[in-house]
């Protein structure tokens, strides 16, 4: 059927499809709303995933990348597994997250900061670091809730569930070389 695929027109739809493995299913959306109906965070979203897909089709790039939809997503994959058209909706949400972060279009959400703090720890130590996340990200972003977290943190600590120091993998240089190569390739 390759002969029937339309020529590239530089639309946002094409851009999203390109950036998402399996994204070509996006053109099959019949706007049924299974995704929006299934989403556990549906009530928090300014636009449901279905609406977002319609907006992608309408080439409304700016509004899509500024939407809060992606940041309310909890990666439960209900939208993906229920989609009657087999569209990888969760993966499309990830694509939009990456675009929004890269272009700094997000607002009123700490999710990008959390992602950054988390991945920075991975880049530095090769392991995640919960205490570091709590002190770094929370102190910076939400000092008040940090205080409420106090008793819980203490409980976790006394039960040996939280370490004060990060673990570092032995071959951290190897991992960093891999990550650097990935960053270099994806910058192209």
């Amino acid at each position: 059927m390759a002969a029937h695929i339309a020529e590239k027109k530089g639309t946002f739809l094409e851009e999203v499809i390109e950036a998402t493995p399996g994204g070509e299913r996006l053109v099959h959306c019949i706007q049924c709303g299974s995704c929006g109906g299934s989403c556990p965070s549906g009530a928090e979203m300014q636009y449901t995933p279905r609406t977002l897909i319609a907006m992608i089709g309408a080439n409304d790039r700016d509004a899509v990348l500024a939407a809060n939809t992606m940041w309310a997503c909890v990666s439960c994959y209900f939208c993906t597994s229920r989609c009657p058209q087999n569209i990888p909706i969760t993966d499309i949400i990830y694509t939009l997250k990456r675009m929004s972060i890269a272009e700094k279009r997000y607002h009123d959400t700490d999710a990008p900061a959390l992602a950054k703090t988390f991945t920075d720890f991975v880049d530095r130590y090769g392991r995640s670091f919960e205490f570091g996340l709590a002190t770094g990200y929370h102190l910076l972003k939400r000092p008040i809730s940090m205080m409420k977290m106090g008793p819980m943190g203490l409980q976790m600590f006394t039960r040996g569930r939280m370490a004060l120091r990060p673990t570092k993998i032995r071959q951290i240089e190897q991992l960093q070389a891999i990550i650097n190569k990935a960053k270099e390739l994806s910058a192209k």
Binding site: K97, A111, A115, V122, I169, A182, S186
Partner: peptide, 14 residues
Amino acid sequence: NCCGATEYFSRNEL
């Protein structure tokens, strides 16, 4: 090493 949880995919898929 860490699997990156859901966070790494939000930043760089590759």
